[in-house]
Design a protein around this nucleic acid. Sequence first.
DNA 1: CTATTTAATTCGAGGGTCGAAAAAAATAGT
DNA 2: ACTATTTTTTTCGACCCTCGAATTAAATAG
Lengths: 404, 404
Amino acid sequence: MTFVIRSNEVRRGNRGLVLSAVRRGALLSRTDIGARTGLSAATVSAITSDLIADGFLVQASDTNSASPGRGRPKVALSINPDAALIGVVIFQLNFVSATILDYAGTTIAENSEEFVSAELTPSEISQTLIDCLQEALTTSGVGDRKLMRIAVGVQGVTDVAATTMLWSPITAHRELKIAEWLSEEFNVPTTVSNDCDLMARALNWRDPERYGESFAGIMLSYGVGMGLFLRGSLVQGLNTSGTEFGHMVFRPGGALCRCGRRGCVEAYAGDYAISRAAAGLPEDAAPREPSEYIDFDAIIAAARKGEPAAANAIQTAGKAIGTGLVSLFALVDTFPIALIGRGTTAFDLMEKPIRETLAQNVAGGDMTEIDIDCFENEKPLVREGCAITALLVLDEEIADAIVV
Amino acid sequence: MTFVIRSNEVRRGNRGLVLSAVRRGALLSRTDIGARTGLSAATVSAITSDLIADGFLVQASDTNSASPGRGRPKVALSINPDAALIGVVIFQLNFVSATILDYAGTTIAENSEEFVSAELTPSEISQTLIDCLQEALTTSGVGDRKLMRIAVGVQGVTDVAATTMLWSPITAHRELKIAEWLSEEFNVPTTVSNDCDLMARALNWRDPERYGESFAGIMLSYGVGMGLFLRGSLVQGLNTSGTEFGHMVFRPGGALCRCGRRGCVEAYAGDYAISRAAAGLPEDAAPREPSEYIDFDAIIAAARKGEPAAANAIQTAGKAIGTGLVSLFALVDTFPIALIGRGTTAFDLMEKPIRETLAQNVAGGDMTEIDIDCFENEKPLVREGCAITALLVLDEEIADAIVV
DNA sequence: CTATTTAATTCGAGGGTCGAAAAAAATAGT
DNA sequence: ACTATTTTTTTCGACCCTCGAATTAAATAG
């Protein structure tokens, strides 16, 4: 059901519009904002003057950078970096990092630590995250300027309310209330998001031309995960972060997956699965622990030399991914794909089986033509996605706040 | 990107809110409308008075049905049946029907015809649809009261703009511009929708308690189709009606599907697939033409008697459906299912393999507990869904129209 | 030093919602 | 029969929001 609209909500919406135009455009004059948002000059003037008064926007004080012709020069507005601070925490396999950013998204301080995630109890995990963020805060020298929001990115399934990590390959513990831990410790609203969703958010923000509307960011690494944008917004599950591409079915009853089921895409395309197949182990051999090192480069090298088990393993991974995509495309039609993570180093070997699998799909016709890009390094994408998510949520909150 | 909100759009939104509350509630007083929508009495009064003046709502003139206590009695408002007429056309295998309904959704006239859909050329299809609707219009005796909207439901994939039937099992012709044909002939805005989407819309409207938020209506008949609601709205493809559950992959490279691909869910769970397997034919035997009669009841009877090929065929159908659901649930978590169509007569035989397949999914835990309802007869659902879709779109248009 | 040009603000009109007060329309009680 | 009470609906004024037009501000061109 839709809800009542009241007059002041109009202002909220338009304030959000202005804020997001400025965040996107970096330096915009009031006229520019009007042009981009469709708001009249009068309204833009009113809204920006509030936002400046409340310290969320600032006017570029100095020169207005080569005003081209004559006429009153534009005065550029931008996000006020000092309006807020946000904390970004990334919890990955054997690795935690914390970053402090200002409201303009500039990194102020950073800190990271390594440890063995599988060995930690929940309370040790909690302490590790808290310590890592506290250390970043301390070194940042921001003093008592208050953190407005903490965003955590985790390698694992989260709940749709962004409070809890329900399940993760990197620890045996379940339902870790990470948001609660941090929000109680730092007394700041905290959200917990799935890393693949964050990668997709980063791409969506970075390159709206290519990734602004619909695409999937598929991570090929120890697990196989996905962040899916359709029509400009992130798809989530009904209860969880969802879009578990890696657990769509490739071969019913087939290879043993880390999740305990059989035949998942990941059970063929995850790096543990590729390693298992390349080593000639049976499909029901237990997946390696995340802590065990997998020499993925050696497998790829072997496959390139034509070593049959390795070549086959990677080919099958390609077929699994292709098959998952066929099922996904049956649901919502085709869209471009960004492959992310270490697994992309084998993309040249997987591309053919992926495209051939897609080509069996006669319906669409142009199934082979799908755009596929690769991004080898996922870490910066996760951090960037986490930061932009936190900032956009903050923008929304600021727009919604009744500014007196 | 979001768009500017202006004052008059607030009124549009709230007018829509009022209209939909009345459509849902049938007989509502202004106070009731206020309570359900959250609008103030003053606003409800203003909006309803416009809507009555323009003839979209009417006041119940006669007694107000046992006003219980004292106080000024409520005066019930309802949709004015005479405000508009809509035409609903259903194009299915060897069968066309046309229905004329008033703005309150009451059927005024109905007409249907049988023919062999596979034998018609596009222009004959066009003529058939036009004639069928024209006949219904003529017998309805509505004279020159104008049709405000035509909604067509088709057994086939439509484009997301609801203008064209892109592909259908019931005719070899592609890209039939059905909306164009009818809108030109009758000079009325026309939409074309996928039948499974319409069934889901009907359930969503009929039983908001159970089907108001998230569920899938899966049709088991000659084909296997789906209409999917998530968070209260219908999921569509990016370019097409989408959510082709039947063409998710069950066994890669497996049985030949009517769509030309191999291994689709439908290639195991469609009635032609069950019939093929029950007859002991190979998996790559060409699917039967839709015109050929399949004695589905006989297959079920044989399966119930324990005839192995038939029992196996139906079991495999269950596994295919279960596997499709596992992949679907991997994307968006679990939700209730409504099975629709002739295939549901075999549900008692399919339930176990479906639930067992789901149970292999350890992640969710309660995968076996999913609610599954059956609806054997799809025709009334399609018609109802088509009608309610047209009426709701009309409501939207009326709310958006600048009433002077 | 003035005319021109462009940016930003101000002001009044117009449209919306809301709460409070008023009006309308019934019943209950004397 | 008449008044008090109760509930629904309408009316009215306050307040919020956006917009176009007019005005003010701040530069350049000549």
